[in-house]
Amino acid sequence: MAPSIDMEARFLDYVSAENKVEPKDWMPDAYRKTLVRQISQHAHSEIVGMLPEANWITRAPSLRAKLILLAKVQDEAGHGLYLYSSAETLGTSRDQMIDDLHTGKAKYSSIFNYPTLTWADMGAVGWLVDGAAIQNQVMLCRTSYGPYSRAMVRICKEESFHQRQGYEIMMHLARGTKEQKAMAQDALNRWWWPSLMMFGPSDDQSPNSAQSMAWRIKRKSNDELRQEFVDKTVPQAEFLGLTLPDPDLKWNEERGHYDFGPIDWAEFFAVVAGNGPCNTERLEARRSAHAEGTWVREAATAYAAKQAARRAATAPTAKASAA
């Protein structure tokens, strides 16, 4: 039976009144679909996003830096877990979602298709990429779907440490030798524009935005979030003594915001389409980790089944002998 218009209208009233939707509540199919797509894409981003940073764990230049980076990347794995679990409450299994990632059906954040070339990239990624992610995630703490919102609250607590550790790396480099400072500036040059692209196309170019706003999944537009991020980040760059690679960047007194130059959306769409510098490598790394782990997962499943069977076989006997 098709849901009545009435149900949809009531749902809209319900979320508009800032109520949370829980897994067993009725929800429009399109709402469920949008959420599964968004949450799984978010989960995949956490997992694929481990790779560019894991690339430097074995080369971290101090033991302290090694521990901090490892803990940071491990957190991202945890975020992936929370998010897969919250997407599963909508009726799609983690295996299915992971399959969709591996076949290319599901997307992940395009930023992770850029290479991490120097240690300064660990600074720039933490500062800018996690920084941009936080902008989005803070908003999502108030998203209308309960399990997603609660996952976001947990994640946001950890994310501020991520951004701080990135900024701290940048600070060390910016205050360091001439080579270190050059390394920091180079990383900033390469990561700045892709970070701005993380918020997605402008509002008039994002077909799903309006609906997501109405459902209270999203609470701010891509452009609003991007502007907040720029306004927050410019003074941080100044404090480091580094230059943002945008000649058009300047404070606009009238708007009370920084103006910034045009984003190269052709680049963004090329990376989304699979033609970024590392798309192939990232997906291949995930696929092969999964494929090489198959026998381990099968063993764990088989062992668990045997254990359950053993318990079932011995339980009645134990009872009988006790009686």
């Binding site: 894991a54 090694k66 990347v73 491990q74 897969y84 980790a289 782990g293 198959t294 381990v296 997962r297």
Partner: peptide
């Protein structure tokens, strides 16, 4: 630490 990001299961 070389395993990070490449484990058989999350």
């Amino acid at each position: 630490s070389e395993w990070c990001g490449h484990g058989p299961i999350l």
